[in-house]
Nucleic acid binder design. Structure first.
Lengths: 160, 160
DNA sequence: TATGACCTTGGAGTGCACTCCAAGCAAGCG
DNA sequence: CGCTTGCTTGGAGTGCACTCCAAGGTCATA
């Protein structure tokens, strides 16, 4: 355990260091203690839809969200951090099923550290490969763009 | 704009410069003249399935493929180049519908150069953005991996 | 207390990009 | 000639990741 990340003057010491581990330097909408966001607030913060948030919970991508006395969801800063991380994983192209697998590992506790690490390292390799592919693609695009070259000068002054 | 990237001594002069424009330095399986590949050969070269190849043709992502006297498809080196490029576009996350749009522009001839250029430039911007996102994700992964750190050392010696 | 915005659920529907199927034609081989 | 393998077609099916719906309960404001 023992988080310890000395990332300069981050006022982020917010991670309770239980499970989410090294928290990103994210500024939460409200400080810990008042972090009981409704689903629509989370929609506003994350850009996900309420449908998607409920669906994430149903499939086990999020552990059970805290509820108000009448059964409405109340998300915490921790949940926001998790959603943030899930967003990153999603960007890597990782299938949701694999993210659920990771979430399960997290729920199982510290004993799954090696598995989690392996999963992340394999993801890391995928990301590196994808970046390489994209850079390759970029080269192709540049070649074609320069071929079409000044032919495109005529119209469209708002090209940026 | 004016891209201008002087990428060393590109020996690429093979493009007939009709439509596909600046062809990538791809070595074709057979030289021009003997390039009448069956669908299963193209499957072997590209990794796509025969289903997908036929489907690409049906939706207009490929212009009509040459046929043998009995009606079987015979792909040319040019078709292979196009599939190569389509593969690149696909990697950028461009929806198939947009690729079809590009294919239509190509079919319409030189008059669409400006539109094609614009489309590619917008794609280029998307690619750059995606690379940036991925690099961001990489940083997050690295942070987490180093958190899980040596906890994962125990088993699995084949980590690479 | 009533109006309207917000929240709940299970289950069904959507859009994308394939992916497969059945029925049938064609070529090569013993 | 029959057999196998490969190719053809239109249309239907699949899997993923949402996305929406209907029917109803909750909450803040007038």
């Amino acid at each position: 355990m023992t988080v310890m990340q000395t990332t300069a003057g981050t006022l982020a010491r917010n991670a309770t260091s239980t499970d989410i581990c090294s928290a990103p330097p994210r500024r939460h909408p409200r400080p810990d203690g008042q972090d009981r966001y409704t689903i629509s607030e989370v929609v506003a913060f994350t850009g996900l839809t309420a449908h998607t948030l409920r669906w994430y919970e149903r499939i086990g991508l999020m552990s059970h969200i805290d509820r108000s006395h009448t059964g409405q969801r109340r998300y915490s800063n921790r949940d926001l951090d998790w959603l943030d991380f899930v967003g990153k994983l999603r960007m890597t192209g990782m299938p949701v099923a694999d993210m659920v697998r990771y979430a399960e590992l997290v729920r199982e506790g510290e004993s799954t550290y090696p598995d989690r690490r392996q999963l992340l390292e394999s993801t890391r390799r995928d990301v590196l490969a994808r970046i390489a592919e994209l850079q390759d693609t970029l080269a192709v695009l540049d070649r074609k763009i320069s071929f079409y070259g000044d032919a495109g000068r005529a119209r469209e002054t708002e090209s940026t």
